[in-house]
Amino acid sequence: MAEPSTRPPASGHDKLMIGQSAAGIWLAHAVLILGILIVAFPIYYTFVASTHSLQTILRPPLPLLPGDRFVENYWEALFGGVGRIGGVPVGTLLLNTTIVALGIAVGKIIISILSAYAIVFFRFRGRMFFFWLIFITLMLPVEVRILPTYKVMVDLGLIDTYTGLIVPLIASATATLLFRQFFLTIPGELVEAARVDGAGPWRFFKDILLPLSRTNIAALFVILFIYGWTQYLWPLLVTNRNDMNTIVIALKKMISFADADTEWHLVMVTSMLAIVPPILVVVLMQRWFVRGLVETEK
């Protein structure tokens, strides 16, 4: 046990609980640091590779420190265009992916908040039926209906369009359920008071419900942005044109182990550019993200 002290224990320092030893704490730090090294290593390695020349990458082992080609490699990839994917610059891919991820996140939030609003704050014929109709979509992920969904996309002429990349993914049972759960905790007195004051459904939604949902929306936004950014199967199905690819799909197309002419330095740069934006979103919005994740999924 720590000695009695007149000062309050400074927060941020390890305090020993009963039954804990200092050695145990050091061991815990050691295990955590090792864990983080393992978790971070693949990303660090790719970053290092992205700053070396193609020749250096082709002769393993790679140096452990970044090389001197950072500016050249990133410039070439972002603006120069990559041969294997039809000369499309990675900048275009980043733009596509950003549009898709934002479209999915914002779209999902809008349509889910509207339907949850209808289900919780109105009484109408078929209310529970519609609720179940939305709920059941949880059980129909794209993976189990690949071909027929693709056919719908072809029939509607949505192949190689942003609409095709975004709209089919914005119906979400999870987000609707989340908003419904949250709305149910809003006391009826609030609705009553709003109605007494003469607020219609739209006023209530805009001035009371939306401000109250701010944290939920922020949390959901992070999760959905990541969801949109990391999509794989869907963009693989609905894009053929190289300049409509998302960065993840383009990256897959850039790699070939059979051919000697894979431009590995550009592959590494593209990987970094595909990883960094969502990581920034998660790390910068960590507070909402962690809360949202742990609370919504339970």
């Binding site: 693949p42 990303i43 990391t230 969502p278």
Partner: peptide, 20 residues
């Protein structure tokens, strides 16, 4: 430092390991 990989697309996670 631990939450990074959450933001990495599964396909890219695969490629990172393939690079190694």
């Amino acid at each position: 430092l631990m939450i990074w990989p959450y933001a990495v697309a599964p396909a890219i996670a695969g490629m990172l390991w393939l690079f190694l």
